[in-house]
């Protein structure tokens, strides 16, 4: 129906991911204004177990899709199949590793526009308006479409809150989706240890060239571990080969928007700021009081990272131990 919203919810073994709970919360608010309801689409093993969390966050209905989620193209075909039947106002994804790969595929199949990496969605005159950063967050655009709009929601942009709805589960009646289309997933190699996805983390601790050598990143890793956060890096450090490309924060790396961003020995070049300036709180530790990072830091400490960071890590651990 015209005011309805489909939310593609990601989960692992039935545990719905936080960015998806945020998308559901956002959708529930919009559906209220549009006079429609929210349907969550879940796929993959354990999909049925994801239903109650979807319901608790505002989904009136939960459709399970019987597809192989490793095959993004098949998954996209299934979502497109449901969307064609439902002709909703909005199909919402999270701007996660999977979501940003999946959403353009669905857009291609439906030939409908996609507003990617939105930080806010609202309703104006009965239509969904998507607000999204452009030019690496140096500007924002507000976009809308007539008819179904697709959007991906940036993690941490909208807090997840409970908003109980029926959460009635049924299996989606989608035609057997096309197979692979020439691209077949051959292998997935797990990381040495399960990592918190940088773009989804609530806390990010990043290190820069001021740390002098790769081995000193243990300072960053220890603080990140104490805070339960993810590790990021400046481009200088990635280009030097100290850290993998997947950890680069900035205009040509990842855009992060955590609750807390800690920049250690990073100068704060415009391209780095582009990737983290929308973080809720920014802490900077740098020995140069003139470093541009201090212009955006809510809490700046002028000092030597090798002295300040270990003390901070101890303090965080002590606070955690004290409960």
């Amino acid at each position: 129906m015209a005011g309805d919203i489909l939310v593609v919810a990601e989960h692992s073994d039935g545990a719905v991911k936080r960015p998806s709970l945020e998308a559901l919360t956002c959708a529930a608010g919009l559906a209220g204004s549009l006079g429609g309801s929210v349907t969550a689409l879940v796929a993959g093993p354990g999909a049925a177990d994801a239903a109650s969390a979807c319901g608790a966050h505002g989904a009136a209905k939960v459709l399970t899709l019987d597809v192989d989620v490793a095959d993004t193209n098949a998954w996209a075909a299934a979502v497109a199949g449901v969307a064609t039947e439902a002709s909703p106002a909005l199909v919402l994804f999270s701007h996660t590793a999977r979501g940003k790969d999946l959403a353009p595929r669905v857009a291609g199949k439906l030939d409908r526009p996609l507003a990617s990496d939105c930080t806010e969605l609202s309703v104006d005159g009965g239509a969904v308006v998507a607000r999204r950063p452009v030019y690496a967050g140096k500007a924002l655009v507000n976009v809308s479409a007539s008819g179904t709009l697709l959007a991906t929601l940036r993690p941490n942009a909208v807090p997840a809150t409970e908003n109980a709805a029926a959460g009635e589960t049924s299996a989606a009646d989608v035609k057997a989706p096309e197979k692979g289309l020439g691209a077949v997933l051959a292998e997935i190699v797990a990381a040495a240890s399960e990592k918190i996805e940088l773009t989804e983390a609530a806390v990010v601790v990043s290190g820069g060239r001021g740390l002098k050598e790769a081995a000193n990143f243990n300072l960053v890793e220890d603080l990140a571990a104490a805070l339960g956060g993810a590790v990021g890096a400046s481009r200088a450090v990635v280009d030097a080969g100290w850290r993998p490309h997947t950890e680069q924060v900035g205009q040509t790396g990842k855009t992060v928007s955590p609750n807390l961003y800690i920049a250690i020995a990073i100068s704060g070049a415009i391209q780095h700021l582009a990737g983290m300036r929308t973080s809720n709180y920014i802490v900077a530790i740098n020995k140069d009081p003139e470093a541009p990072i201090f212009k955006v830091a809510d809490y700046g400490i002028v000092g030597d990272a090798f002295e300040v960071v270990p003390r901070l890590t101890e303090a965080v651990k002590a606070a955690a131990a004290a409960g």
């Binding site: 507003a115 308006v129 140096k138 500007a139 924002l140 507000n142 976009v143 479409a145 929308t278 809510d298």
Partner: peptide
């Protein structure tokens, strides 16, 4: 898709040491 408006982001809180 229609771009209704383009604007600059609200300024961040002033940095503080």
């Amino acid at each position: 898709i229609t771009v209704k408006s383009l604007e600059l982001p609200p300024p961040r809180r002033e940095g503080r040491i």
